[in-house]
């Protein structure tokens, strides 16, 4: 694997858990044991009902593009060679939204409402990022 030069998440606390599941090929979100509410990003307790109990619950991995941008000029030096690149906010079937990218769609082809399915990209030996692919047919 060539040297990966883009920013990486830090595997601490809840992020260690979230990205740990991603490495296993699973997109899991916290789901409140008290009221069943799904949440992302990870939190310490449920803002809906106050419960401190939750379970990392498997997502269907299905969602649709809620909104997006196409970055034409990088505003972080690490992304200088990546432009133009798109960033999408994906709304999952469970209701939570995930910031990511749709890997197999050209930036100019993105559309709000486009159905997508999660996939994982192993960017280092330790870290896999959740990305999305267009669902066709």
């Amino acid at each position: 694997m060539t040297e990966y030069s883009l920013p990486l998440p830090v595997l601490e606390g809840h992020s260690a858990d979230f990205y740990g599941f991603c490495k296993e090929g699973e997109l899991r979100f916290q789901r409140c044991d008290g009221c069943g509410a799904w949440r992302h990003v990870p939190r310490e307790l449920c803002a809906e009902c106050g419960s401190w109990e939750w379970t990392w619950t498997l997502s269907s991995g299905k969602g649709e593009v809620f909104t997006y941008t196409v970055v034409g000029r990088a505003l972080h030096p690490a992304f200088d060679d990546s432009v133009p690149y798109a960033v999408s906010v994906v709304e999952m079937e469970e209701g939570v939204r995930v910031l990511s990218r749709v890997a197999d769609v050209e930036p100019g082809e993105l559309e709000i409402g486009m159905p997508v399915q999660v996939d994982f990209e192993a960017v280092t030996d330790e870290i896999s990022l959740p990305i999305f692919r267009r669902v066709t047919g």
Partner: peptide, 24 residues
């Protein structure tokens, strides 16, 4: 949160954060 869930995807600066609101 930004470090772990935004920056890896290149969502790094104000025009990008707010552009998704404008697009919506």
């Amino acid at each position: 949160i930004a470090r772990d869930y935004y920056l890896p995807f290149g969502f790094t600066a104000p025009p990008q954060w707010y552009s998704v609101l404008a697009r919506r």
